[in-house]
Design a protein around this nucleic acid. Structure first.
Length: 750
DNA sequence: TGACTGTGGGTTTTT
DNA sequence: CCCACAGTCA
């Protein structure tokens, strides 16, 4: 019985079987923390705890999914009934049920970062504030951090510290923007990412219909992975659920302060330190044996992280032998770095018999992936890039989703603004602004105003048509499944036709994206998901949209034999036989954004620590003397983190600090080779030029144009005032032009 | 109204 | 370098 317990070391086993009361597991890299978590859940179930009384929170959908898979290997199908998900997705699920208690519709829309920024821009514009001073990104991060610290729009102006900082930055009205933004979100029936936490907290806090008690009873055991990455608000929610009179305080958190890499978005290690103050009977287990990496790697990591002042003491060790020393590659330029890494990969594949999937390239910024992609492609090595823009952020995908979103929630202004004139249906900026203004002044939504706004007859007709079309979608949504509706919408709106008309490579890609989106929806309709012991039969578009709102492209992983390219952040929790950490230069890693504070540098160092501890057998670090960035060549010193690794862990032929090379790197030439499309310089005297009336121009005529010179009318299409002439101008580079006759000034030549 | 061009600005990590 | 936006022109 329970033979899996025998696979664990003493500390791990204790962490698994100590089920009652508050538990903190401090888990170094590779120390088997995921095993502890999954076995703990399995153990709970075996002890008779009902699966749906267990809440397991993670940061990514991927780790939630993996967790479920691993539990099901031990306990079988019951695993699906555990509440295992990300903070955001789990709380969204609860809010769907309870939203109306706090004034939101249960079909609320989730605004992603783009939607949020777009709405913020609109608010800033409405308030007549300068978009330069009130930079959207800055405002967003300000509001996000307010929410993450449980500061309401009402409380914000009373926070002396915040207001002083805002005034110092010449942005005294942030609290007003925050307030208006909140109102607009609510009016749109929408929550942003932070709201999923923030509103859940207030739901529990305000406690309508004793909803707090309901969830306290429901979740008898709560587990949290990557606890070091939780923010104040997340911890506050956990406390709400587990810290009260007569609570059993069955909260188990697993984390590693050394791997805290999300402070920039409000995560705080203080949560780990506060734990023992809040939970008096806290039991702590330290997992210090690293089963992942060989000794040189572990010791290098220990030495590096030792430079950080703030940390929980622990000694990570490995008994896997010393293994390979760490290799450092010094390249002249970013291009050379790409080539040398690709060469090294080829070599490792041959010498160590690694397959592609054993290898990962980790970088600080997603933009760095390009060079590596180029060389890997050239060498015919299969790779997969993670991060960057997600599938669901692609324009065409968002367009179709916006139609579907509006079908579900007509209050969703961001969706409406996105598609009201896409594909083009002659509803221009002026019209949209009128609608928006009316909505703002009358407390109605933009949807309500579509038919009420006063506009010229032509626009009126277009608006009616648009609304009518949307209404057919809304009606259909009630009767058909998600796939049927989505296909109908894609055709009916003209999106498909529009994309098919574009035959460029990018155009084909876009059409393909729409097809895979539709395929995805089909899959959703056809595959059954079990929730709390029951098969989910709701296959409506509403359920679909809710399910995908929180997907990221990290979730799109497919099995295959490829080299992994991803940011260091994204690599958290993963492991590879061979890891390349590239771009180790000052201002890049550590990032220049973090270089002016000790805390910033320490976070970068933790990120470096996370990066190098992904490696099992081989670790290669690289930097380039020059790097092409933002159109300029930069010269940076090697990263300080390289110098922090004791020399005895590095391959012998390398010493830091000695800048041997005096040769200047080759300059880029691409700029000068760029072909510029220039118009021919024609000497036509405006005085001699007498344009002929558009109605007289016919196919076959010779005409003269002020800028393009002489040309022959090849073809005329369109009718009445929309005639377009295709004209071949012999005197310019790119001779065939299409001009609208109504505007084109052409003189008929004999 | 819409397509296209030029410029000017920013520039990290992600649920 | 890449993107978003304003301005221009048809």
């Amino acid at each position: 019985m329970q033979n899996y317990l025998e696979e664990l070391n003493d500390v791990q086993r204790a962490a698994v079987t100590t089920t009652e009361g508050p538990v903190l597991v401090v888990a170094g890299p590779g120390s088997g923390k995921t095993r502890v978590l999954t076995f703990r859940i399995s153990y709970l179930i075996e002890q008779g705890v009902l699966p749906w009384q267990i809440l397991s929170l993670t940061f990514t959908n991927k780790s939630a999914r993996e967790m479920k898979e691993r539990i099901s290997k031990v306990v079988g199908g019951k695993a699906n009934q555990v509440w295992a998900g990300t903070f955001h997705s789990t709380f969204a699920k609860i809010l769907r049920v309870e939203a109306e208690k706090i004034g939101y519709p249960s079909n609320f829309t989730i605004y992603d970062t783009d939607d949020t920024k777009s709405l913020l821009k609109a608010v800033i514009k409405d308030m007549n504030l300068s978009p330069d001073i009130y930079n959207v990104n800055a405002i967003y991060s300000r509001i996000s951090s307010a929410k993450s610290n449980l500061i309401t729009p009402k409380a914000y102006p009373q926070m002396e510290e915040l207001m002083i900082a805002d005034r110092a930055n010449k942005r005294p009205y942030i609290h007003e923007i925050y307030k208006k933004y909140t109102i607009r979100c609510k009016k749109a029936g929408a929550m942003d990412f932070d709201d999923l936490l923030f509103q859940l907290y207030y739901l529990l806090h305000l406690n309508p219909d004793d909803v707090l008690d309901k969830y306290r009873k429901k979740f008898k055991y709560i587990l949290v992975d990557e606890f070091q990455d939780t923010n104040y608000l997340q911890y506050a929610i956990l406390k709400k659920l587990t810290l009260y009179d007569n609570s059993k305080q069955n909260l188990c958190v697993v984390g590693d302060d050394a791997q805290s890499i999300y402070a920039f978005r409000g995560a705080t290690v203080d949560n780990i330190l506060d734990l023992s103050k809040d939970y008096k009977t806290l039991q702590t287990f330290k997992l210090e044996q690293n089963y992942r990496s060989t000794s040189h790697i572990v010791q290098a990591a220990n030495a590096t992280i030792g430079y950080n002042k703030k940390q929980i003491k622990k000694k990570i060790w490995s008994d896997k032998g010393s293994g390979h020393k760490i290799k450092v590659i010094k390249a002249m330029s970013d291009t050379e770095e790409g080539k040398r890494i690709a060469d090294a990969i080829v070599e490792q594949k041959n010498r160590n018999h690694y397959s592609n999937s054993d290898i990962a390239i980790l970088y600080r910024t997603n933009a760095q992936s390009r060079v590596f992609e180029e060389y890997l492609r050239r060498y015919n090595i299969t790779y997969q890039v993670f991060g960057g823009t997600s599938f669901y952020q692609r324009k065409e995908v968002k367009d179709l989703l916006a139609y579907l979103r509006l079908t579900i929630n007509q209050k969703d202004e961001e969706a409406l603004k996105r598609i009201i004139n896409y594909p083009k249906r002659a509803i221009g900026k002026a019209t949209v602004e009128k609608i928006s203004a009316l909505a703002a002044n009358t407390d109605q939504t933009m949807w309500d105003c579509l038919t009420k706004v006063e506009v010229p007859t032509r626009a009126r007709g277009q608006l009616n048509g648009f609304k009518l079309m949307m209404e057919t979608f809304i009606q259909k949504a009630a009767t058909v499944d998600a796939y049927e509706l989505a296909t109908f919408v894609a055709r009916q709106t003209g999106l498909i036709t529009k994309l098919k008309a574009d035959t460029t490579i990018e155009g084909l890609g876009r059409l393909e994206n729409i097809t895979s989106l539709l395929d995805g929806i089909k899959e959703f309709v056809e595959n059954d998901e079990v929730i709390e012991g029951a098969i989910q039969t709701d296959k409506t578009i509403g359920t679909y949209i809710q399910n995908i709102a929180l997907h990221t492209n990290m979730d799109e992983e497919e099995a295959g034999n490829y080299v992994t390219l991803m940011s260091s952040h994204a690599a958290k929790g993963l492991e590879f036989k061979s890891v390349f950490v590239v771009g180790l230069e000052e201002s890049l890693f550590p990032s220049f954004m973090s270089m002016n504070s000790q805390a910033g540098i320490e976070e970068e160092r933790r990120l470096f620590y996370v990066s190098i501890t992904r490696a099992e057998e081989m670790l290669t670090l690289s930097f380039a003397a020059s790097r092409y960035r933002h159109g300029k060549t930069n010269y940076n010193e090697p990263s300080r983190f390289l110098a922090e690794i004791p020399l005895d862990h590095l391959e012998s032929n390398f010493t830091m600090g000695a800048q041997t090379s005096k040769i200047a790197p080759r300059a880029r030439v691409s700029g000068s080779l760029k072909k510029k499309r220039t118009e021919a310089v024609l000497n036509i005297d405006p005085a001699d030029f007498k344009p002929s009336p558009a109605s007289e121009i016919e196919e076959g005529m010779k005409v003269l144009h002020m800028k393009f010179g002489e040309g022959k009318v090849v073809h005329i299409d369109g009718d009445r005032d929309k005639k377009v002439a295709t004209i071949n101008f012999s005197q310019i580079d790119d001779p065939e032009r299409r001009l609208m006759l109504k505007f084109a000034k052409l003189q008929i030549m004999p």
